[in-house]
Simulated assay, not measured.
Amino acid sequence: MKLRTIARLDLIAATRHQKVLDEIERHNAMLVSAEQQRQVLDSYRTRLREGWQNGQTVIASEAQRASHFVRASDNAEAQILRTEQNARRMLEAALQKLADSQAYRNGLDEAARKATLVEDRLAAQRAELALPARGPANKAGGS
């Protein structure tokens, strides 16, 4: 394979590689966001629990709102969990794509190295063929 072709393939591979890195960054951001959402939800649940446990009188409307919140928080937690699981699966797939991309690029590097060696050998052979023949007259420095 010619060096020019290998260079073009490497440019395409580098673009794909960068897209995979960006994808990994997005999935990691989704996981961080899910964790932050879970922390906020836990914080609200803790405050609600503390309100019920301190022994104060609770108004019926507050109890009803708390009940709605508990149901909504359970649904939100389930959704956060699904989002997190999906992000983990996608992250694992992206990491595999990254490994494949790196292996492909390593193969291109090896092909470029071999092609450079071949071109260098050919250039050396051409240079040898292009040298004037050294006969006895040329060795003495005269014509």
Score class of each variant (00 low, 15 high):
K2T: 15
L3K: 12
L3N: 11
A7Q: 12
A7Y: 11
R8Q: 09
R8G: 05
L9T: 00
L9Y: 02
D10A: 06
R16G: 13
H17R: 09
Q18K: 11
K19Q: 15
V20I: 15
D22I: 08
I24G: 04
E25W: 02
H27P: 00
M30I: 07
V32W: 06
V32C: 02
A34G: 07
E35D: 14
E35L: 09
Q36M: 07
Q39G: 04
L41C: 03
S43Y: 08
S43I: 00
R45A: 13
T46K: 15
R47M: 13
Q53V: 10
N54I: 10
G55P: 03
V58G: 04
I59D: 14
A60Y: 10
A60G: 11
A63G: 12
Q64Y: 12
A66W: 07
H68W: 13
R71T: 15
D74W: 01
N75Q: 11
E77R: 12
T83M: 09
R88D: 00
M90E: 12
L91S: 00
L91I: 00
E92G: 02
A94P: 00
L95Q: 15
L95H: 04
K97H: 07
K97V: 01
L98M: 06
L98G: 00
Q102R: 10
Q102W: 00
A103I: 03
Y104I: 01
G107W: 05
R113E: 15
R113P: 10
K114M: 14
K114Q: 15
V118P: 00
D120S: 07
D120N: 11
L122H: 09
A123S: 13
Q125P: 03
A127H: 08
A127V: 05
E128Q: 15
A130V: 05
A133N: 04
P136Q: 03
A140M: 05
G141S: 03
